[in-house]
Design a protein around this nucleic acid. Structure first.
Length: 419
RNA sequence: GGAGAGGUGACCGAGCCGGCUGAAGGUGCACGCCUGCUAAGCGUGUGUAGGCUUAUACCCUACCGAGGGUUCGAAUCCCUCCCUCUCCGCCA
C-alpha cells in the first residue's frame, strides 16, 4: 500500500494514479478520515497521558500506604471517556484502512499513460519471425493429430478451462517446466521453492490480489483459503512480518506451481484451446531487493524470462504496459508476448513487474539497512514463463506439413528422447 | 480429532502472587580502544509504529501471538481464536 503520509502530502499524485489505472478508490473520503482520525487520536492521547500520570500517583501513594481515594474517584469517569473515544477511533481507523487497501500503486514515470492495452508501448521484437510455405495448423489441430490434449474430458470432470495433457503432451509439458526451472536455478541463480497451493486471506491481501480481485479467486469457504492465482502469492509472502538484514538481500526464488483463476467476466474471450484456462502451469520468479536496486532488478528479471524464449528460438516482443493495463500493485510491468504463427497473434506468456515497496508495506516485509534503519524491501516478480501459450507457440512454430513436430533440441535431455 | 506445554525485542531468554518493565541478561549489529594480521578482549551504543515538529532532536501515545473482558491501572488475571511443540488416535 501507499504510505498514508505520502498520500496526505501528495494527494494529486495519488489521484492521478487512481485515474490512470482505472481504479475506483475514494481518495477524498480517505483524506477526510485521516484528518478525523488524527484529531481524535490527539484527544485520546492527551486523556491517556493524564490517566497514566494519575495512575502513577496512585501507585506511589499505595506504596507509601497513603490514601488515594480522591484520585481513584476521578479515574473512573476518565476511564469511561477513554473507552468511548477509543471505540470511535477504531471505527474511523477501520474505514480508513479499508480504503487505504484499495489505493493502487503509483506507476513510474517511464510507464506510458493510457486507459487500456492500446496505449501499451512495444519496445522491441526479438528472434526471427518464422515463415512457412505450407498451410499452418493451429495448436488445437496439432494437439489433436498427435493426441496431446484431452480438453473435452477435462471439461467433463471439472469444467471447461481445466485441461488434460495426455501422453506425449503431458511429457512435453513436464519437460518444458523442468527445462525452465533448471535454467533459472543453474544459469540465473534462483533458489527453488515448492510452496502451498492454497493461501490464507492475509497473504492474498499482502500481495494485493485482495480486496480487489476476490471474484477472480477460487475460495474454500470453510477454511477461508484461496487457491493461488500465481506462485507470486505464497512466495512473496514467505517473509511477511519479518525483518531481514540488508546482507541477506537480494534473494531470488523460482517456483513451479499450477495457477487457478476463475477468469470472471472474460467468458468467450480468446478461449480457443489453451489460450485462457482456469488451471494452468507456470514457473514464477520472485525477487526481493534492496530499496535502491529494484529498477535494475526489473531488467534482470526481464532478461531471465527472455532467456527462456530465446532458448526455444521463438519470436516474441517486449511490451511496456500502459497505466491502464498495469496491475493494481505494479508500478512498472513488461509483458513478453510470443508469436503464435497459426493463431496469428502475439500471446502474453510473461509479466515482469516491479512492485517497489507496495507489497512489502502490505505484507510487512522489512530489512535493516547498513545504517541500522528499517526499510521496506522491494519485491518484483516475473513469469518465467507460463506454459499454455508457450505450448501454443511451440506447437505452432515447430510443426511440419503433416502435423508432426520438429521440436527445439534444447528439450532433448528433458524428454529423454532423441529429437 | 483427544491430552498437555508454550507463543516476549533481529535472535535466544528472564519477568507472569497487577503499578517503580519498553521490558533484566546474553547473542547479533554499529562505533571506539587494544593486539603485527585473524581470533579473542575492553568500552559505549542499539526496538518498532503513530502523533507533534523544519527536524532521524525533544515530548506524548501504542505495542510482550490476535481480539475481547476485569481493573483507576494488565506482558502479568479471565474468555475466545490462531500458531508451534510433545504424546495418543486417524491417515497418504
Amino acid at each position: 500500500m501507499i504510505e498514508l503520509k505520502f498520500i496526505r502530502s501528495n494527494p494529486e499524485i495519488v489521484r492521478d494514479a487512481i485515474i490512470n489505472k482505472n481504479e475506483k478508490a475514494n481518495l477524498d473520503r480517505l483524506l477526510e478520515l485521516d484528518e478525523a482520525f488524527r484529531k481524535e487520536q490527539f484527544e485520546f492521547e492527551n486523556l491517556r497521558a493524564h490517566q497514566n500520570t494519575v495512575s502513577q500517583e496512585i501507585a506511589k501513594k499505595k506504596r507509601a500506604k497513603e490514601d488515594a481515594a480522591k484520585e481513584l474517584a476521578e479515574m473512573s469517569d476518565l476511564a469511561a471517556d477513554i473507552k468511548d473515544i477509543q471505540a470511535s477511533l477504531a471505527e474511523i481507523g477501520a474505514e480508513r484502512d479499508a480504503i487505504l487497501l484499495s489505493i493502487p500503486n503509483i506507476p513510474e514515470d517511464s510507464v506510458p499513460i493510457g486507459r487500456d492495452e492500446s496505449a501499451n508501448e512495444v519496445l522491441r521484437y526479438e528472434g526471427e519471425k518464422p515463415h512457412f510455405d505450407f498451410a499452418l495448423k493451429d495448436h488445437l489441430e496439432i494437439a489433436e493429430l498427435n493426441g496431446l490434449l484431452d480438453l473435452p474430458r477435462g471439461a467433463k470432470i471439472a469444467g471447461s478451462g481445466f485441461p488434460i495433457y495426455r501422453g506425449f503432451g503431458a511429457r512435453l509439458e513436464r519437460a518444458i517446466i523442468n527445462f525452465m526451472l533448471e535454467m533459472h536455478i543453474q544459469k540465473h541463480g534462483f533458489t527453488e521453492l515448492m510452496v502451498p497451493l492454497m493461501v490464507n486471506r492475509k497473504s492474498m491481501i499482502g500481495t494485493g490480489q485482495l480486496p480487489k480481485l476476490e471474484e477472480d479467486m477460487y475460495h474454500a469457504e470453510q477454511d477461508d483459503l484461496f487457491l493461488i492465482p500465481t506462485a507470486e502469492v505464497p512466495v512473496t509472502n514467505i517473509y511477511a512480518d519479518e525483518v531481514l538484514s540488508y546482507k541477506e538481500l537480494p534473494q531470488k526464488f523460482v517456483s513451479y506451481t499450477p495457477c487457478f483463476r476463475r477468469e470472471a467476466g472474460s467468458y468467450g474471450k480468446d478461449t480457443r484451446g489453451l489460450q485462457r484456462l482456469h488451471q494452468f502451469n507456470k514457473v514464477e520468479m520472485v525477487y526481493f531487493s534492496l530499496a535502491e536496486d529494484s529498477s535494475r532488478a526489473l531488467e534482470e528479471l526481464l532478461s531471465d524470462a527472455e532467456d527462456i524464449l530465446k532458448a526455444f528460438g521463438l519470436h516474441y516482443r517486449v511490451v511496456n504496459l500502459a497505466t491502464g493495463d498495469l496491475s493494481f500493485a505494479s508500478q512498472k510491468t513488461y509483458d513478453l508476448e510470443v508469436w503464435a504463427p497459426a493463431t496469428g497473434r502475439y500471446l502474453e506468456v510473461s509479466s515482469v513487474s516491479n512492485f517497489g515497496e507496495f507489497q512489502a508495506r502490505r505484507a510487512n516485509i522489512r530489512y535493516k539497512d547498513a545504517e541500522g534503519k528499517m526499510r521496506h524491501a522491494h519485491t518484483l516478480n516475473g513469469s518465467g514463463v507460463a506454459t499454455p501459450r508457450l505450448m501454443i507457440a511451440i506447437l505452432e512454430s515447430f510443426q511440419n506439413p503433416d502435423g508432426s513436430l520438429n521440436l527445439p533440441e534444447v528439450l532433448e535431455p528433458w524428454l529423454q528422447l532423441k529429437i
